[in-house]
Amino acid sequence: MTFLFFFVFAGFALAGAVGVVVLRNPFYCVLSLVVHLISLALLFLLLEAQFVAVAQIVVYAGAVMVLYVFVVAYVGGGDKPDQLWGAGPRQKALAIGFASLIFIELAIAILGTALSALGTEGAKLSANYGTPAEIGELLLTDYLLAFELASMLLLIAAIGAVALAGRRGGIAEDEGNLSPRHGVVHTPSPAATGSMAEGVSGYGVTTPLPDPQFEGRELQQPAREAAEDDR
């Protein structure tokens, strides 16, 4: 039974990986990677690593892939058909040649190894192998330093991502120049129409809200998107 499950999951994992490499539209590549990640999580389950399998689905197939989907939706644009396979057949042949070399080397390493335990199903497992209890204990005892460093790394990456992708110094010169057709004119709603701002602040019940932030960046964001779609 394990045999059957292994081949089904491994087949899906490999099919997902092939899809990531050959599909033309980046969006389909992301979806293909989600298939790959989920079947990989099932393979982890076959290896009795329950906690890592769940973390794989939640963190990878969930959070990270959602991030990808957002960026693909924002940047968009598949590879142009004539550019799909890079700079011509020579580079493609070289890439496939190098990849086959890597595979041959890995296969020699795996099949020619003197590590006889590789040919077994693995050692006898303790009762709590792969459970959150075991992972938590290991993380807070033997691997405490790695755990803390990983959290620092995540913090640094989050700050770095904001610094890279964030908009510094307000809206750039060219981003503000929108055609009048797309310019959003802020029309304040009539007073006492029950808007959320009125409810929160109590201000503007009789007078329209003079909301300075709406004159600036907030409302130009959708207008800019529209202008870019139009290009």
């Binding site: 994992a13 490999l14 990986a17 092939v18 990531v20 490499v21 980046p26 590549c29 992301v30 990677l33 790959h36 990808y68 960026v71 693909v72 940047v75 598949g78 590879d79 550019q83 396979w85 890079g86 700079a87 580079q91 493609k92 070289l94 890439a95 496939i96 190098f98 990849a99 086959s100 890597i102 595979f103 890995l106 296969a107 795996i110």
Partner: peptide, 22 residues
């Protein structure tokens, strides 16, 4: 090993940075 090979081939073949990250 197969998945690693496919990933390496993809990094070398594709030219869209998004797909290279994938």
């Amino acid at each position: 090993a197969m998945i690693f090979t496919l990933g390496a081939a993809g990094v070398m073949i594709r030219r869209n940075p998004l797909v290279i990250l994938l």
